[in-house]
């Protein structure tokens, strides 16, 4: 890829950043780029529901998960689902958490 093409690509990407205030960015603004999908194009989960292990038939033993245990409560977030949402806003053991992928 030549330099000119990369430069034009960066311009196009930067223009599509309208919407978030970047004036006080603490990293170089030109390094904040559009990733393709628009804001909320990938929908974060705000009211996640949970099932018991015997109901989790969609999971295969080798499926990758992110698990967390806080104050005695264990919850697990399959990568299969995180792939499509990237963020789950939840509460575990009374502690408000964001699971990010």
């Amino acid at each position: 890829m030549n330099r000119c093409l990369i430069f034009s690509m960066l311009i196009i990407l930067s223009v599509s950043l309208a919407g978030f205030k970047l004036d006080n960015a603490i990293v170089p603004k030109e390094e904040i780029l559009s990733g393709g999908p628009p804001k909320d194009g990938i929908p974060a989960l705000l009211e996640p529901k949970f099932v018991q292990p015997d109901q989790a038939k969609f999971l295969r033993p080798e499926d990758q998960v992110i698990g967390i245990k806080l104050k005695g409560e264990a919850k697990v977030y399959p990568i299969r689902i995180l792939n499509w949402h990237e963020v789950v806003n939840d509460t575990v053991g009374g502690i408000p958490i964001a699971v990010t992928f």
Partner: peptide, 28 residues
């Protein structure tokens, strides 16, 4: 930042048999 495990479902379930699992019923 909170400690979490990235592992397989099999390994997590073995350690945490009473775990809750995020449902595919996400509203999407």
């Amino acid at each position: 930042k909170l400690a979490s495990d990235r592992t397989s479902w099999k390994a997590w379930k073995k350690e945490h048999p009473r775990t809750l699992i995020l449902s595919t019923d996400t509203g999407h």
